[in-house]
Amino acid sequence: MTSCHIAEEHIQKVAIFGGTHGNELTGVFLVKHWLENGAEIQRTGLEVKPFITNPRAVKKCTRYIDCDLNRIFDLENLGKKMSEDLPYEVRRAQEINHLFGPKDSEDSYDIIFDLHNTTSNMGCTLILEDSRNNFLIQMFHYIKTSLAPLPCYVYLIEHPSLKYATTRSIAKYPVGIEVGPQPQGVLRADILDQMRKMIKHALDFIHHFNEGKEFPPCAIEVYKIIEKVDYPRDENGEIAAIIHPNLQDQDWKPLHPGDPMFLTLDGKTIPLGGDCTVYPVFVNEAAYYEKKEAFAKTTKLTLNAKSIRCCLH
């Protein structure tokens, strides 16, 4: 018999989150649709729960009410004593943790798909938090293969000092899905179709896995975050240069030392320094102006996964 890495157990509980950011409308629209008619997301033997994560922000069509829901799922915020004085999103995070967690427990949901849009030209993107997770690498390989020839990129946010504390991190297997470009507060049919297909293929993978299909060893190309880059700023902290036209919409493309990065209003080009080629992502993302992030630098690498098969009882 072929030796293989056996994944822990079959997958039982899956959640699909929309509206973690209330103005990213593809996930909101799909989740609302699936709450009314969820036939397309159901798979035999699998509990799939669509869920609106930040209903107040969705109602106002804004990213958040008090603070970013997708950055506060750490033990400090989840452990705060519940009171009306807490920011709305912290209270909501505790409610979500109660419903789908608790985080880092045996009772937490197996998989959470968190649906997002970006204003950046990132196409279909899967966000991975753990480079050693054979199950998710296999799932992402399946999704990428199923979507081809449509490109699907994998963004690895594993980093020693950049801690995200994402909404989906309460699950055993957290999956971020990011599709763009799409303006905030807008629905685009092409973007919706791409996100819908990503979810379909992900659920198909889980179904095949649960039925005992063995997935042979595989490898995927990923883009691992190195650092986030702020806009150049003046002495008052105001933005002093904008994304250069040569960099705009060039997510995932190589940016070499000396290539144009920013452009000042008086026409001066600010190039990339250093001696390493990087791959920019979230270029000129609207939501990241407040976070002082013009783009993120990534490096390209390959992740390998062992063969996996479900432990059938």
Rank of each mutant, 00 (worst) to 15 (best):
C4F: 10
C4V: 09
H5E: 07
I6L: 15
A7V: 07
A7G: 10
A7D: 13
E8I: 15
E9R: 14
I11Q: 04
K13Q: 07
K13F: 05
K13G: 03
K13V: 04
V14L: 04
A15K: 03
A15W: 03
F17A: 06
G19T: 02
G19N: 03
H21P: 00
G22E: 12
L25I: 14
L25P: 07
T26P: 11
T26A: 09
T26S: 09
V28C: 13
F29W: 14
F29A: 08
K32M: 08
H33F: 08
G38L: 07
A39K: 11
A39G: 11
I41W: 00
I41H: 00
Q42A: 08
L46S: 04
V48L: 05
V48N: 03
P50D: 01
F51M: 11
T53V: 09
T53Q: 04
N54S: 15
N54Y: 04
K59T: 15
T62S: 08
Y64L: 15
I65C: 09
D66S: 09
I72H: 09
I72M: 14
L75A: 11
N77I: 08
K80P: 09
K81L: 10
M82W: 13
M82Y: 11
S83A: 15
Y88P: 07
V90R: 11
V90A: 09
R91C: 09
R91D: 09
R91N: 15
I96R: 06
N97S: 14
F100S: 05
K103T: 15
S105E: 15
E106W: 12
D107L: 15
D110P: 05
D110G: 05
F113W: 02
F113P: 02
H116Y: 08
H116I: 03
H116M: 14
T118I: 07
T119V: 10
T119F: 02
S120G: 04
N121Y: 04
M122E: 01
M122H: 10
T125Q: 00
T125Y: 04
L126E: 00
L128P: 00
E129V: 06
E129A: 15
D130F: 03
D130M: 00
S131P: 13
N133P: 03
F140S: 05
H141Y: 14
H141Q: 08
Y142R: 02
Y142Q: 02
I143D: 00
I143L: 04
K144G: 05
T145P: 00
S146R: 14
S146H: 11
P151D: 08
Y153K: 09
Y155N: 09
E158A: 06
H159R: 11
P160G: 09
P160S: 09
S161F: 09
S161T: 15
S161N: 15
S161A: 14
L162I: 12
K163A: 10
A165E: 12
A165V: 09
T166D: 08
T167Y: 08
K172R: 11
Y173T: 15
V175T: 00
G176T: 15
V179K: 00
G180A: 01
P181A: 05
G185R: 05
D190F: 02
Q194E: 06
M195F: 01
R196Q: 07
K197Y: 09
M198T: 14
I199Q: 03
I199H: 01
K200N: 14
H201A: 12
A202V: 03
A202D: 00
F205K: 01
H208S: 12
F209M: 04
E211A: 09
G212E: 04
K213N: 11
F215L: 05
F215R: 00
P217K: 07
A219P: 03
A219T: 15
V222A: 14
K224Y: 03
I225A: 10
I226D: 11
E227N: 11
E227R: 04
E227T: 06
K228C: 11
K228T: 13
P232H: 03
G237F: 04
A241W: 00
H244V: 00
N246D: 10
N246H: 11
N246P: 01
N246K: 14
L247C: 03
Q248I: 13
D249A: 02
D249S: 05
Q250M: 09
D251R: 02
K253L: 08
K253H: 10
H256I: 13
H256D: 10
D259M: 11
M261E: 04
F262A: 00
F262N: 00
F262W: 08
D266W: 05
G267P: 03
K268E: 13
K268A: 06
I270Y: 05
I270G: 02
L272Y: 10
G274F: 03
G274M: 04
D275T: 14
D275F: 06
C276Q: 14
T277E: 12
T277Q: 09
V278A: 06
V278C: 11
P280T: 03
P280C: 04
P280E: 02
V281Y: 03
F282S: 14
F282D: 06
F282K: 13
E285W: 02
A286W: 09
A286H: 07
Y288N: 13
K292C: 08
K292N: 14
K292I: 13
A294G: 06
A294C: 04
A296L: 09
T298C: 11
T299Y: 10
L303G: 01
N304G: 07
N304M: 09
N304C: 13
A305L: 02
S307Q: 06
I308C: 06
R309P: 05
C310L: 11
H313Y: 10
